[in-house]
Design a protein around this nucleic acid. Sequence first.
DNA 1: TACCTAATAT
DNA 2: AATATTAGGT
Length: 701
Amino acid sequence: MTVEDQRGGEYGAFDRFPVGMRVLAVDDDPICLKVLETLLRKCQYQVTTTNQAIKALKILRESRNKFDLVISDVNMPDMDGFKLLEFVGLEMDLPVIMLSAHSDTKLVMKGITHGAVDYLLKPVRIEELKNIWQHVVRRKKLDPKNQSNSQEKACHEAGEVGKGLASTVYLDSNAKLNKKRKDQGDDEEEGGEDSETENEDPSATQKRPRVVWSPELHRKFVAAVHNLTLEKAVPKKILDLMNEEGLTRENVASHLQKYRLYLKRISTEATQQASMIAALGGKDSAYMRMGTLDGFGDLQALTGSGRLSNTPLSTYTHGGMLSRLNSPAGLTLRGISSTGLIQPGNPQNFKSFNTLGKFQRSVSANQSTSLFQGIPASLELNKFQQTKSTTYIGEFSALNNPTGFAVPASFPDMRVTVGNSGTASNSSSTSLILQPNPQQTHCRGALGSQSSVRVTPLHSESFDRGISGSSNFLDHNRCNESWQVAVQSSKFPSTALPMSEPSNRGQMHSNDLGISSTTTQIGNKPNDISSASAFLAPLADSRNVQGQDGLIGHFVQTTNYRVSQGWDGQTKNYNHNLNQNFSASSSLVSSNSTMEYINQGLGQQGTVCSENFNRSILDQLNGCTSSVYGTSEIEKSVIGTKIGSSEDYFLSQAKAQDAFIQKNYESLDDIMTAMMKQEQNETILMDGEFGFDTYPLGSCI
DNA sequence: TACCTAATAT
DNA sequence: AATATTAGGT
């Protein structure tokens, strides 16, 4: 892994590869642009420049496959660099490097979460530019097969694609395929069984070929879901919207089922990640470091590993996770009802980020506040009365994507196979598959690229997107925010956050969030945990998430919760709730929860992490020392008991973390290393699935 | 009927 | 492993 790999490897083929690499440089400042161009040229890249993001986008759209990498300034009048980044991520599979004079963590984070493969500070040094080609290599590495191979092959062979696999490609255009199955017994497409059949439709056979959910098809599916809105997206409606020929309601239902599971998973993961991040994020130190490294991957990785356990998933998606956070799924999952949350006053505040901030504040203000309300009751309800805390989360608007929701993602993995189930030996492929638009498919995930991603871009990317889309799905609910964990709220006033713009749309209602509250207390000790606010960094893909603005990070601060009562019983609930909230809202992250997670993890092990670890990380959380959280108890309670139902998620999460933590890492590095390893392993798992990428991280460390 | 979730089959 | 199918509920 690591760098070497990335560079080397197969890329040898490229020969003089870095030479002549096609780079599109974007910067509104003519001087900077010129300098950049000069430097890039010195690196022997083939450079194209433009001083407007919009033009850049236009150029890219008009000449697909004519560039290998994009390097863009962040602050530009016509279009925010992040926006550009987002579009590029969405529409094409190109690594994007952000350039900015500001090293503000939040901005960097935003860039990374939006999919930037790197974030360079101005003035840029040629040394840095000399290496940017690695991003191209990484990205290519990902998809070699899909794209190139398969597609081409498919085309050529078309007829023959013997085995299923072949088709990876999707031709979409036609999509002929299936027919509706049920009734007809015969129909066209080929019969499954037979293998050979060359005929296209052997009709003879009875079964129709199974539906292959190619990326395209999946995209379509996702788009339909979005259009309908998660709640209303039922098989029949989806089917109608998709208007695919051979598709049946059952097919859709089945896929929907899977899709929902996926969303769930994601939300779970997201949660975890969030927590991890929060934890780590605490200080700049570690956090930053990671981020800086390029590490977004790292971060992700971390988080990922944290998550671990059950989900085989991939957490590491590039942006994916984050984005997923937002995903509605969570909401959906838990039925969050909204009970009323109150919103405080100014709508303005609503902006997502702020929202959080506010949220916290409000919370702190009231002791008793319950953080989340609305939740069903599974828990005991708030014993504490809740005051109205505000919780708002920003809502996402639909994505901005130009495409609208449509951007669907496909499940990552989808590869198409064509054929019928049977052996169709032949060719006939009738697959439903559509052709993917290249544009769409791509990985946007810059993040992914950072690390070496293994999965092909298609997958991951698409999937992410899909997800993101999905998030939208939630309708209004999409909270999308990503957060960053910062320690101390004070540092980052919520208001201050520059981050993304507020989305207009959004205000979320509590419902949306699904937050419930139950007990709110958090620490048991009289101490509040006050300061522990975490600043989460957003991981998510902002792209997805963002809606209009792209925003990325939202802040969340949580601060002081007081606990009045003991941990035990309540604690459990508390955790529970939080978790749920988390997952549900995803956007909300409270440091507390985060902490708890951490603690939990720690606690269980009993041993706890090494001091270093604790210190560096946990302590950083200000005030929230482990002691406060008392580690073990909480966790135990949490973990040990299964609380409520949905807790699965929670539990699993906890476990994961435990696992992670258990190893007592001495330092971050260790952790990282471990994670990396883990990831690698996990990667494998993931790949198949929805394919998120994993990163080897190697480079980071 | 349509839908959902799980379980189970292919 | 990804889909389909079935079963049991709403």
